[in-house]
Simulated assay, not measured.
Amino acid sequence: MNTQAVTLDEPITRGDSKIAFIEIRKPKSGALRGINLADLLQMNTDAIMKVTPRVSEPIITIQEAEALEPADLLKIGAAIASFLLPKEVQNSLQ
């Protein structure tokens, strides 16, 4: 699976529309540049907020990522972190 849908507890307001769910794409190495992978796996808030705009559809801005509810940030972080696990570990979790 190369994407994971994340339903937000608190939708993002963008102009007149609301974003209630986002797709998180499996990050390529370029999307992870400048990020310590251990920080992502440890759910470091700064690391999640930096990577989210690079892997989200629709694209979430850094400002929107900073304004996310903590529970939504955690869901997004879990989705990103799950892509970093080796396939053997991912398969054993399913």
Rank of each mutant, 00 (worst) to 15 (best):
I19F: 06
A20D: 14
F21V: 00
F21I: 00
F21E: 15
F21K: 13
F21G: 10
I22A: 07
I22R: 04
E23A: 07
E23D: 14
E23F: 04
E23Q: 15
E23R: 08
I24K: 03
I24S: 09
I24G: 07
I24P: 12
R25L: 10
R25K: 06
R25H: 13
R25N: 14
R25I: 00
K26Y: 01
K26C: 10
K26G: 03
K26Q: 15
P27K: 00
P27R: 00
P27G: 02
K28W: 07
K28H: 10
K28S: 09
K28G: 13
S29H: 10
S29D: 14
G30S: 12
G30A: 09
G30Q: 13
A31T: 01
A31C: 02
L32Y: 06
L32S: 04
L32I: 01
R33H: 08
R33P: 05
G34F: 01
G34H: 04
G34Q: 04
I35A: 03
I35W: 04
N36M: 05
N36W: 04
N36E: 15
L37V: 07
A38M: 14
A38T: 11
A38C: 03
A38F: 13
A38S: 13
A38I: 10
D39F: 00
Q42A: 09
Q42Y: 06
M43H: 14
M43F: 13
N44Q: 12
N44K: 07
N44T: 02
T45L: 08
T45I: 04
A47E: 09
A47M: 05
I48W: 05
I48V: 13
M49S: 07
K50M: 11
K50L: 07
K50E: 15
K50H: 09
V51N: 08
V51E: 11
P53Y: 09
P53C: 03
